[in-house]
Design a protein around this nucleic acid. Sequence first.
DNA 1: GGTAGGATGGGCT
DNA 2: GCCCATCCTACCC
Length: 207
Amino acid sequence: MRLGPVLPRSFYERRTIEVARDLLGKVLVHGPCAGLIVEAEAYLGGDDLAAHSARGITPRTRVIFGPPGHAYVYFIYGMYECLNLVAEPEGRPGCVLIRALEPVAGLDLMRQRRPKARRPRDLASGPGKLTQAMGITRAHNGRDVTRGELTVREPLEPGNFAVAVTPRVGIRHCADWPLRFIVAGSPFVSPGPSAPDSQAAHQPVRG
DNA sequence: GGTAGGATGGGCT
DNA sequence: GCCCATCCTACCC
């Protein structure tokens, strides 16, 4: 797939909800591997007790309060790592959990990294799966994603797709806040709740 | 097709 | 000591 420019820092220096929604259809790139973002969740400051930043700055959450356009990668359930992209101006917490990709490049390497994946849709349809497939680890925590080998880029030939909104997956607090954004009908999203119209025909992200 | 339960370790009270 | 922004397997329709 041909790629457009890397998203600039100004893209991330906005309200977290807008950044989450606008990341859909963009391309996450790490070395030879790339995937279209089809699912993302916003984690806010303020009253959002589901966010890791809700209890203030700690060694782990420091990066969430730092400058936008950096990666926040955390370790969960003793086995998995999850990728977030930091939003909001520096000093204000806010980040976007990348939850699913439609793989578009480097699929052979992704299959090597996830040998149990039987179909393309099993490679990156969840936050832990996509870090495995893309080779993203805690070593990437704090990395600037506006330059270097881990970036997010515009696709050339942006496609038409509808955005659906649902509650976030796997959290206890604020469980009904509509902060999960998905490409409506995409078969590459995680097994979380679907949009009401998700039974409809798949709208390709790439038109 | 579906779901229940286990793996596994860091973060924080 | 408890919680956790998950995934996979076994097992059951």
